[in-house]
């Protein structure tokens, strides 16, 4: 808040009212409903509901299928985050270094930010298609029979590649802006101290980028958990049957297909706790964030 703020009584409330109303109706009400219905067992035909306490949670944690989805989500998140961060970092370091065409490379490497995940998913469906897919042809050339939507790990592979493709631009933009904010005198001093490019990167540039990297780590985990929904939904072509899926996708499948309101709500609450943990982690990091310049 500003020191010299206005001391009006009604105006701030009036200014906040639209935002708070929308949040109350479309955020707090459904969030409250989710928590509430996670303690109830709904009749699938709509004939009332019964309070069951923590039974939905107990069922969830005892479920083998849920454990399998959770394991896949963990692996998926790890691979997408690590691959897209590493690729983007490499590209940002090179784009920061080259003298010619830096602007062109920057544009070429960031425009995919604007492509919607399901649109990328549709292109993935075509590229990895059993009949017409070019990637499938490439696999066949190496003697591997790639089958999207049939083989569990083949589908997982396509999901990871498409998710990484979409996520590289954001990471690239942040890494590049992080690199470009390293002052010239620091760079020159580093050049004198450590003429080897590789050593210089790990000893000087990378530690300077660490705050950006930590921040991006959280962003990427959140992305892999929640924003990949469109990619997964398109790649499994509406048919999750034997395909891998993430926790968020399962909330949707159980809630809308399986009509399991209580179970789906309990999953929502579990994810809520997960996001809460991530947010607290992020703030602890931000507090300790070191500024070198």
């Amino acid at each position: 808040m500003k020191r010299a703020g206005f001391a009006n009584y009604w105006l701030p409330i009036l200014l906040l009212l639209p935002q708070l109303t929308i949040i109350a109706v479309f955020f707090y009400w459904p969030a409250f409903n989710a928590v509430q219905s996670s303690f109830y067992l709904q009749d699938p035909f709509g004939f009332g509901s019964q309070f069951v306490g923590f039974e939905n949670y107990a069922d969830l944690f005892a479920s083998k299928e849920y454990a399998k989805v959770a394991r896949f989500t963990l692996l998926f998140t790890l691979l997408v985050t690590a691959t897209s961060l590493a690729t983007a970092l490499l590209l940002a370091v090179k784009a920061d270094k080259v003298l010619r065409g830096a602007r062109t490379y920057k544009t070429l490497l960031m425009w995919v930010y604007a492509v919607a995940p399901p649109v990328a998913g549709l292109m993935g469906v075509m590229l990895f298609d059993q009949n017409i897919g070019s990637v499938t042809d490439l696999f066949a050339w190496f003697g591997y029979d790639y089958r999207l939507g049939v083989n569990y790990w083949d589908t997982a592979f396509a999901m990871i590649i498409v998710s990484v493709w979409i996520q590289i631009p954001v990471n690239f933009i942040f890494f590049l802006s992080g690199l470009q904010s390293i002052p010239q005198h620091v760079r020159e001093a580093a050049m004198i101290d450590n003429p080897s490019g590789f050593g210089r990167f790990w000893q000087i540039t990378f530690p300077l980028l660490a705050p950006t990297a930590f921040f991006l780590l959280i962003i990427n985990i959140t992305y892999a958990l929640f924003d990949t929904f469109g990619i997964i939904d398109t790649l499994v072509k509406n048919n999750p049957a034997s395909n891998p899926m993430t926790l968020v996708y399962k909330v949707f499948v159980d809630g809308f297909r399986g009509n399991d309101m209580g179970g789906s709500s309990a999953q929502s609450v579990v994810l809520m706790v997960l996001v809460l943990a991530l947010t607290i982690f992020q703030f602890r990091l931000l507090e300790r964030r070191i500024h070198y310049t």
Binding site: L16, Q19, L20, I23, V25, F26, F27, W29, P30, A31, N33, A34, S37, T222, F226, D227, F229, V248, V251, F252, G255, F256, M261, S264, S265, S268, L271, M272, V275, L276, T279
Partner: peptide
């Protein structure tokens, strides 16, 4: 008011999709 708005980052739409739809 700040905290009421701030809390919304805890729960992306994807997570509360079913209750939101019902509302």
């Amino acid at each position: 008011a700040f905290w009421m708005i701030f809390t919304t980052i805890l729960l992306p739409l994807e997570v509360r999709i079913l209750p939101s739809y019902e509302v």
